[in-house]
Design a protein around this nucleic acid. Structure first.
Lengths: 194, 194
DNA sequence: TTGCAAACCGGAACCGGTTCCGCTTACTCT
DNA sequence: AGAGTAAGCGGAACCGGTTCCGGTTTGCAA
């Protein structure tokens, strides 16, 4: 009786050697496929390119969204790390705006990723490191703004994040970049006091 | 039988008798299916229930989204007609809020419709009467608010509509009603002056 | 009435995501 | 080394949306 349960991800028990190898191959193949065709790349093609069956892919990544999340995790992290840097260099309201624009640009750049990420964002399992990262970055920006009294107090990072998700979803295509900008404007007017 | 009669410009030559009959059956079957199972009802089931092949359905409604749009057109119209009534009874900011909440409630009520409608909203063909209707309703509400100087001038109805679409998309599930409310709050803060 | 073309019909086929399950394999314990 | 077993594997099968196309029907006109 080896009752492992409730492993909320962090202390990974080691994967079996073949499983680890397959996971590596899958990540590699998926990264290549998404880079080439955007999130529209088919799961079956990715599995084939990795030399495994779809079942194997699905055991490691229970849905296509989660695979996408895994692939872009690094880039999201980079985006989040930019938040403190922005507040150090820009006035808080501007830092906020700039970061938001980068966020939506990022989503728009990865074709079809918006939908996937939205699913991930709204899913309320805490396993998703990505959401936490993003929320933290936003909290940082909002706190800075609040601290200098340029933002209404009590605006939740979580909500702003969701709003950004919604904007990305609606303004998914490249042609709608202007729309995204205008919506961010609207959102900012709701956040900053002036 | 219900008259239905289109609004989206249909001065074309009348449909062939069999085609018309099939369209009627399809609308009936689709309405029943969506009412019972939400937008998740399968196209194939609807076609079967209507006693036609999927090909027939697709000739009339080139995508599932458009079928959904056709089915809910009436309800959307009703929603839009409520806008002037609200401004007549409530102060403009409150009228705006109430209407927005009705909008997202409506979207949430029809399970899965948010996505379909978002596609319709972002599609830039002008054939979609629905979008025009909604934009007009919002224009009415915004004008009233602007007229009484409670709204920033220059807020485009189109943009607000998109924002509502985004909110509906993100807060699609029933559990997220609170989120939708908070996001509307945020949006309103961006629109009204105070 | 009959002939004919355009409009229409049905459903098989395709594609993508996801699930299921019988078989295989890497590790562990002795 | 050998056996037992959980973990892992692959891909067939399923489901839903969409397309395609050979055959049928309708409405018009000769």
């Amino acid at each position: 009786m080896t009752g492992h349960e409730g492993d909320t991800a962090r202390p990974r028990r080691p994967l079996r050697a073949d499983a680890q190898r397959n996971e590596d191959r899958l990540l590699e193949a998926a990264a290549a496929a998404f880079a080439r065709q955007g999130a529209g790349a088919s799961v079956k093609d990715i599995a084939r390119a990795a030399g495994v069956g779809v079942g194997t892919l699905y055991r490691r990544f229970p849905s296509k969204e989660l695979l996408i999340e895994a692939i872009y995790r690094q880039e999201v992290r980079r985006l989040c790390e930019a938040a403190p840097e922005l507040t150090a260099v820009l006035p808080p309201a501007q830092a906020l705006r700039t970061w938001m624009e980068r966020f939506t640009d990022f989503m728009a750049a990865k074709q079809g990723m918006a939908e996937a990420l939205a699913v991930v964002l709204t899913d309320d399992s805490d396993k998703l490191h990505t959401r936490t990262l993003l929320a933290d970055a936003l909290t940082h920006l909002l706190d800075a703004a609040e601290g200098q009294s340029v933002a209404r107090p009590g605006v939740a990072a979580q909500d702003v994040l969701m709003a950004l998700g919604g904007i990305s979803l609606i303004a998914a295509s490249e042609e709608q970049r202007a729309l995204a900008t205008r919506l961010i404007d609207l959102l900012l007017h709701g956040i900053v006091t002036n």
